[in-house]
Design a binder for these strands. Structure first.
Lengths: 339, 339
DNA sequence: TATATTTACTTAATCGTTTACGTAAAACCA
DNA sequence: TGGTTTTACGTAAACGATTAAGTAAATATA
């Protein structure tokens, strides 16, 4: 069974395809009666315009790309949700691309998007991304790019972030107030903006409370779960074993908890743990984990809204293109002083 | 800056677009020398063929749609990952659509896909989906549809499922062996295939071990977290309070754990809990939860492989189109008899 | 009544690739 | 050498929707 096209519609209505097209798009120079006839039949026959034809002719795809490092992460899953909500409402389609934290893949993907497949791009860059040439090329081609969460400072048509510095600062202060003297920060990437922001908030708090920041305060983690677990395991055997750990991304929670379990260290009795995470199950972890929760859904939504606004050619002022949403510090048992 | 098209390529090379096109597609009637020239320049200028033009002309989009109820669920997130892996390798693009468990949305989405936007569809239906007319329409239009996880028996071009009945049976037996006398099954949907399969495995085990199955063994849950929590909370106050709960989908873990906490019931001391879930953090929950873990990534991968095979017009035998992958029962503390 | 304007349509070009078909030149064959 | 085949390219027509430009008929205006 072939699907019905505009040509067949026109034939059945004894009209030209031009008239049908204009009727469907509610053009002023088609009579009301004809419009009704066309709409009725189109609906009856489940007419769906061919996306490629419209796309080719109109240079519009009604499709946006979401380029993210991974999908099995609460933050990104929730963010996609936000994006999808906006897209669905506005009749847009969402292409999802996973970079798996590899810049090369990211570049290949962006390269592919240069020629009309999508109208705009939402991106959260990989932990290694450093150069913006491909992204610049997209933008200079007329494809707006909005960053969310993992952004490039001052690039693209917009940036949706959270108050990473402040949140991290607050979290660190909270730990210090819980009498932690040696807090280790698990750094995920050295080049990523969110990573350095989070680290700097942490450093700032240390400094303000008179603690020194040394190499020992940092554990650099990778994308390999097993590797991370081992380095944390080693960390926990140091002479100056930390009394608190901040996991700067969700992915580091598992290795941290597991390493503590294997070392027979009780959280929070022997060591406090907190994490940047959107994990829904934070409250039922063993123990419930203190988190900095980002408004992931909102961020996806805001990013998509901004992108669509740009696509509609609406003017966008500085405030709109540079949104910083507040994340929430949720204090749970993993950082409470046991009694 | 406009992107480079085939026309410009041709002009620069002093060739016709036909020759360029054929050279790029490695046609036999272009000389090796010319092919090299074309390929070289195309690469230098970062030529990317226009997706709409190719799509329109060739009636191929190199795009597949993934239609799922939600994305913030470990199973679906991992499944998308599997799909993406295959797609990326084969140069396909992945459109993600969320139905939010609403049949109406599902139908609108599928309707939209009728006209060329995608070459094929991977779907996990909503909990209310019952009729297959839209899906049939897609298939009769020549768009293959492969189901995964939440399938419609005997429909579509393929079905990738897990051994839900067996897994559920095994889990129930495990609970019975842990001396559970009153196991309640939290049913998510009454129409969904996976739900009934899981329920039937449970019933079978009850029956084999001489337990009666009554209305009281079932708690029907919805898509509303709060609502679910309240009904579980009430369940826990019944005179014949269950000594075990099986959550038939991941989404029911949170309300179950929370309700138990609020009732001050210790898992597994007062009540055992197990769930069908792919939650990565299962091991670090309080307590670590016994799960039936589905090979989500593999399922996504298998479904995508099957779909692409169908798209390539390769013959597919019964075995290939009907895959049942084994899930794994991972016994953890939430169902162990405390000593 | 003659002319101008408006209404409601149609014609045909266009978007960028692909491909069936056409064709000159080169290579081959007898 | 004359003819056939092969090679390597070009011409032009699709794909289906959109839209500028054109047109006949209806209506308005002077």
């Amino acid at each position: 069974m072939a699907t019905i096209g505009m040509k067949e519609l026109a034939k059945k209505l004894k009209l030209s395809t031009a008239t049908v097209s204009k009727a469907l798009r509610d053009s002023y120079d088609i009579s009301e009666k004809t419009k009704q006839r066309v709409l009725k039949l189109a609906h009856e026959l489940n007419y769906v315009p061919n996306a490629h034809a419209s796309g080719l002719r109109g240079k519009k795809s009604k499709t946006i790309a979401v380029v993210i490092p991974e999908v099995a992460d609460s933050y990104f899953a929730q963010a996609i949700n936000g994006v999808e909500t906006v897209a669905q409402k506005e009749g847009f389609h969402v292409l999802v691309y996973l970079t798996h934290e590899q810049v090369e893949k990211e570049n290949l993907i962006l390269q592919e998007l240069l020629n009309g497949r999508v109208d705009g791009v939402l991106i959260s860059v990989t932990s290694q991304s450093k150069d913006v040439t491909t992204i610049d090329k997209l933008i200079s081609t007329g494809i707006p790019v909005v960053f969310f969460d993992r952004v490039f400072e001052g690039q693209g048509n917009g940036q949706i972030t959270t108050d990473d510095f402040d949140a991290s600062y607050k979290l660190t202060v909270h730990l210090i107030e819980q009498a932690c003297k040696h807090i280790v920060f698990l750094l995920f990437s050295e080049s990523l903006n969110i990573s350095t922001q989070r680290m700097n908030g942490y450093k700032r708090a240390l400094h303000e409370y008179g603690f020194n920041f040394t190499e020992n305060n940092l554990l650099i983690c990778t994308n390999q779960d097993q590797e991370n677990k081992e380095s944390i395991y080693k960390l926990l055997a140091r002479k100056d074993r930390p009394d608190a750990i901040i996991a700067s991304v969700e992915k580091l929670i598992m290795p941290t908890y597991l390493a503590c379990m294997e070392r027979n260290l009780v959280i929070p009795g022997n060591i406090r743990v907190a994490a940047f995470s959107n994990l829904v199950q934070a409250e039922i972890l063993n123990p419930a984990i203190t988190t900095i929760t980002q408004p992931a859904f909102e961020m996806g939504k805001t990013a998509a809204d901004l992108l669509l606004k740009a696509l509609k050619g609406k003017p966008i002022d500085q405030e709109e293109s540079n949104v910083v949403l507040p994340s929430v510090l949720e204090i749970r048992n993993s950082t409470k002083t046991p009694f």
